[in-house]
Amino acid sequence: MPPKKAQPSPSAIPASAAKPTHAISTASSQPTKTPNKPVAATTATPSIRNAQDIQQIGTAVWNNYVEKTAQRTKLLDAFMAFLIVVAGLQFLYCLLAGNYPFNAFLSGFSATIGQFVLTASLRMQTNPENQAEFETISHERAFADFVFGSMILHFFCVNFIN
């Protein structure tokens, strides 16, 4: 596949910030997709290596991921991927149709982004590799925190969109 610039116009920071993550997580989380998906995504970086190399690395990453990741983390990744898709759709719609009720756009988009961020946090906290970083936080606690944070987020968003 030819290198594809997945980067949208730099009109808004969240987009450019979210996009690479988008690429990465789709690469790492959608089990049904073929391994050449991450190839397309990672070539967003300066294309100094040939396609074969990238394909190899992609396969390695994918295998690594499938082997090492726990079921629960995969669930998280699926949810994150879902959120990315929702956010991407909203952003696309905003670019196409304009952001007329600006508060609605903001709350819709930031609800998704916020949820994504919280889920990513949960993923980090529950990742056994990060156990050392989060000594004091058990998984139950992490999940409870996650729910707490999400509730606040949803409240704000719904309030903002009225």
């Binding site: 930031s110 961020v117 919280l118 946090s121 990742n127 970083e133 987020l153 704000f156 903002f160």
Partner: peptide
């Protein structure tokens, strides 16, 4: 990851809170 968790949580929620 701690920094990621705390910063992103603060920013996502705090920005929304301030916009209220």
């Amino acid at each position: 990851p701690r920094l990621y968790v705390s910063y992103t949580t603060w920013y996502a929620l705090g920005t929304l809170a301030s916009m209220q």
